[in-house]
């Protein structure tokens, strides 16, 4: 049922000075790319992708940017929060060789997706990009699991200096990928979509969410596609027809905001 289950946080981990992971017991099946609605009592309820998947234990990893994420950042083991979901569809992972591209907090949901691909014995290349070294996380986790990892930072403080899409361009022209799967800033994903041409492509979109279960209409893109229900992951055929993709999102009132 779409009602928040109030539970106690088991463990928290600081990934960087602004990025944190919260672990909690939630024994539901979940696919990488699906998300929860996380209720921080008296503050807000916000969508968060699953970043750790274990049979019983699940995790979310987030950056503090505003009221809700700052309040969430302050929570410790033993504190209570509400969780409902999982919501949305998640990535469809298949083929012989996959390129994952993550930007910013998109890395959070890419990590369990990479693990799923490797479990399926798919050759997996991962590109992660961030503004600078201090915003990078999960590099060791991804490498240890057996993916081939490349890092870029806008300022060159770690790995390739420049945009992750420049790195992606090079990889795509030198390799044959069956799928390109991505999560990150929408303009980055849009650029990647153009670069991927006729490779099978899936991107995970973020839109303002209220209900999370397809009834309020807040998160719609294109011709009434609910990001919380038919998304957040869309494939190339659908993305081609979503005029919003890489152009605008909507704020809580429904007003268009250009990217």
């Amino acid at each position: 049922m779409n009602y928040p289950k109030v539970l106690k946080i088991i463990e928290t981990r600081n990934e960087t000075s602004d990025i944190k992971t919260i672990m909690f017991e939630y024994p539901e099946d979940i696919t990488p790319g699906q998300f929860f609605m996380i209720w921080i009592p008296n503050i807000d309820e916000i969508p968060m992708s699953v970043s750790f998947i274990d049979k019983k234990i699940k995790g979310i990893t987030f950056k503090r940017i505003g009221d809700a994420t700052n309040a969430l950042f302050k929570l410790k083991a033993g504190d209570k929060m509400g969780v409902r979901g999982p919501y949305g569809n998640g990535f469809k992972i298949n083929g012989q060789r996959i390129l994952f591209v993550a930007g910013g907090t998109g890395i959070a949901m890419i990590a369990p997706s990479v693990e799923k691909a490797i479990n399926k014995e798919i050759k997996t290349n991962v590109l992660i990009g961030a503004k600078n070294k201090s915003e990078l996380f999960f590099e060791n986790r991804i490498k240890k699991y057996g993916a081939e990892l490349f890092v870029s930072t806008d300022d060159g403080s770690q790995g390739y200096k420049g945009f992750v899409t420049d790195l992606a361009k090079e990889k795509i022209s030198n390799n044959k990928f069956d799928q390109v799967l991505t999560c990150g800033p929408e303009l980055m994903m849009k650029k990647l979509f153009e670069l991927s041409q006729n490779i099978s492509f899936q991107a995970s979109l973020e839109r303002y969410m209220k209900c999370g279960f397809g009834i309020c209409g807040q998160c719609c893109v294109g011709k009434g596609l609910r990001v919380c229900k038919e998304g957040p992951v869309f494939n190339e055929k659908t993305l081609k027809n979503i005029e919003d993709f890489g152009v605008f999102k909507r704020d809580a009132s429904g007003r268009k905001i250009k990217f």
Partner: peptide
């Protein structure tokens, strides 16, 4: 903008 979340739940 409407009210902050939670705004819609199922009973």
């Amino acid at each position: 903008n409407g009210f902050p979340n939670p705004t819609v739940i199922e009973l």
